[in-house]
């Protein structure tokens, strides 16, 4: 029986879809069988980031409305040996085309075949959000150090508290080391304390994320980037490993030298 995790943020543009693609890929790299579900119906992106855009034949609405079987709509990522699948969103419908009950049934079906089901939640707190959290067992909350994203994250935690999902876990994305050290933005500890939920991981701002996503290759495939390491750490923590946080105190360069840079 698999576990469904919703990846949400409230605010748009903080990296939900990128994080879904990368955490899912990292879990697949660890040998887990993973299905990514794109719930951003009408504005789908997850397929683009995974480089699977052209392979979509059926989508989630086709499944819900009975035009296709679930296994027909699932897209296999050929980079992994039957480990990573995507259930794409429909582009021609909107968020109201599916309801919570249908979503729960769908995810229950997926749980029979997959160990992890990652649900990419759309921005906002409307129907798309409700559908996404309805079927989830756990939640990962993405925020950036910006106050607007933190405020929205706080709202989302409040909404998730009213559901059977236990406390969401926090991922702080797009950390700019310089700004955080200068005190221009709240630091990791402040954000975590303010939101008072468990910290799952941090991701440094990294141009390579955009570059990799544009090529349709999640950045996590290439281990030589701090963002990739961040996502790998998150996936290991999801699997129950204890991984120390990439701390801000350490110099980024020396940190990487420590791991990969001997002799360089």
């Amino acid at each position: 029986m698999g576990k469904a995790i919703v990846i949400t943020s409230g605010k748009g543009g903080v990296g939900k879809t990128t994080s879904t693609a990368n955490i899912g890929t990292a879990l697949a790299l660890q040998g887990k069988k993973v299905c990514l579900v794109d719930m951003d119906i009408g504005l789908r992106n997850l397929d683009v980031i995974l480089g699977l855009e052209n392979r979509i034949i059926y989508d989630i609405i086709d499944v819900v409305e009975g035009r296709a079987k679930l296994h027909q709509a699932l897209i296999k990522d050929k980079r992994f040996n039957d480990q990573l699948f995507l259930l794409p969103a429909a582009q021609h419908a909107d968020k109201n085309a599916i309801n919570e009950i249908q979503m729960v049934d769908l995810v229950e079906e997926l749980k029979n075949d997959f160990e992890y089901i990652l649900i990419d939640c759309p921005a906002g707190i409307e129907q798309g959000f409700k559908n996404s959290i309805a079927a989830a067992d756990d939640a990962i909350l993405i925020t950036t150090p910006e106050i607007s994203a933190i405020r929205d994250a706080d709202r989302i935690i409040g909404l998730i508290e009213q559901t059977p999902i236990k406390a969401p876990q926090l991922v702080i994305n797009r950390i700019r080391k310089g700004m955080m050290e200068a005190g221009d933005v709240m630091d990791v500890e402040e954000i975590t304390r303010h939101l008072s939920i468990k910290l799952l991981g941090i991701i440094y701002e990294d141009d390579e994320v955009v570059r990799a996503s544009n090529r349709g290759n999640p950045v996590v495939l290439d281990p030589d980037h701090p963002s990739s390491q961040g996502y790998r750490n998150i996936s290991r923590r999801i699997l129950g490993d204890t991984v120390p946080l990439m701390t801000l105190k350490e110099e980024k360069v020396s940190f990487w030298k420590k791991i990969f840079g001997f002799g360089k």
Binding site: D154, R155, E161, S196
Partner: peptide
């Protein structure tokens, strides 16, 4: 938390944080 509302008849003693 943001968006939440806690109401009481009479007086209220709140132990915790009221977020923005």
């Amino acid at each position: 938390r943001s968006g939440q509302m806690v109401e009481a008849e009479g007086d209220m003693l709140l132990i915790g944080v009221v977020h923005p």
